[in-house]
Computed example of a mutant assay.
Amino acid sequence: MIVQDRLAIVDRLLAQPFPGEGTRDGSQSSGPGFHVYVLQASQEFWDDRSEEVVEPAQAEIDAAFQDLAAGLTARWGEPQVVDLEPYLWSDDEVPEPMARLCMLTLRLSVWRPPGTDRWVGLAVGQADAEFAIELLLATGDAEFP
């Protein structure tokens, strides 16, 4: 998928209404006030977690992150980098999509597109060493971050 295709997904999620309750459809999960979309995923690493397998997969996802981040930065300026670790250890109920995102990554690059009350977040995440490495796109309402 090329950067222009990914930017089109960003635009679609910015315009798409939030559902009243949680839903999941393929690569997208949504709920009140958020959408999370898996833009790209590596293979899973159940059978082989060697450096020769994991490092190229990580490099491919990191490059896709950098390319899309550059496109978003060209549109809206430098992102705010948000530390998600406090959500991971919070004693309070963590709202979505932070509850999901903090289980996959500890950093989220966030842009606030002008003319909208939503934010756009981009991250690379992985649930555990055996799972796929994912390029994650999130949009949410203005309450975060």
Rank of each mutant, 00 (worst) to 15 (best):
Arg118His: 13
Ser30Glu: 00
Pro114His: 07
Trp111Asn: 02
Pro113Ile: 03
Pro113Glu: 02
Arg49Trp: 02
Gly31Trp: 05
Trp119Arg: 11
Trp89Val: 15
Val110Asn: 06
Gly31Cys: 01
Glu52Gln: 11
Val94His: 01
Arg112Trp: 13
Gly77Thr: 11
Leu106Trp: 14
Pro32Trp: 04
Asp67Trp: 11
Ala69Thr: 08
Trp89Lys: 12
Thr116Pro: 08
Pro113Asp: 07
Ser109His: 13
Ser27Gln: 08
Gly31Phe: 04
Asp67Phe: 07
Ala74Gly: 14
Val36Ile: 15
Asp67Cys: 02
Ala70Ile: 12
Thr116Val: 11
Gln58Gly: 01
Arg75Thr: 04
Trp76Val: 06
Met103Ile: 12
Cys102Thr: 15
Pro95Glu: 04
Asp92His: 12
Ala74Val: 09
Phe65Trp: 09
Ile61Phe: 08
Phe65Arg: 01
Tyr87His: 05
Thr105Ser: 13
Asp91Trp: 14
Val53Trp: 00
Val36Ala: 03
Ile61Val: 13
Asp83Ser: 10
Pro86Arg: 06
Glu93Tyr: 12
Arg107Glu: 12
Glu51Val: 10
Gln28Ser: 09
Gln28Ala: 11
Glu44Cys: 03
Pro56Asn: 00
Ser50Ile: 10
Phe34Thr: 06
Gly71Tyr: 00
Asp47Arg: 13
Glu52Trp: 10
Ser42Asp: 02
Glu60Phe: 04
Glu60Trp: 05
Gly115Ile: 11
Leu84Trp: 09
Val38Pro: 04
Glu93Val: 13
Thr73Cys: 05
Pro86Leu: 03
Glu85Leu: 14
Asp47Tyr: 12
Trp89Gly: 05
Gln58Asn: 01
Val82Tyr: 09
Gly71Phe: 00
Ala99Pro: 14
Glu52Leu: 12
Ser90Pro: 08
Ser29Tyr: 12
Val94Met: 03
Asp48Ala: 01
Val36Cys: 05
Ser27Arg: 13
Asp91Phe: 15
Gly71Ile: 00
Glu51Phe: 11
Ile61Asp: 00
Pro86Met: 06
Met98Tyr: 06
Ser50Gly: 07
Ala69Glu: 06
Arg107Thr: 08
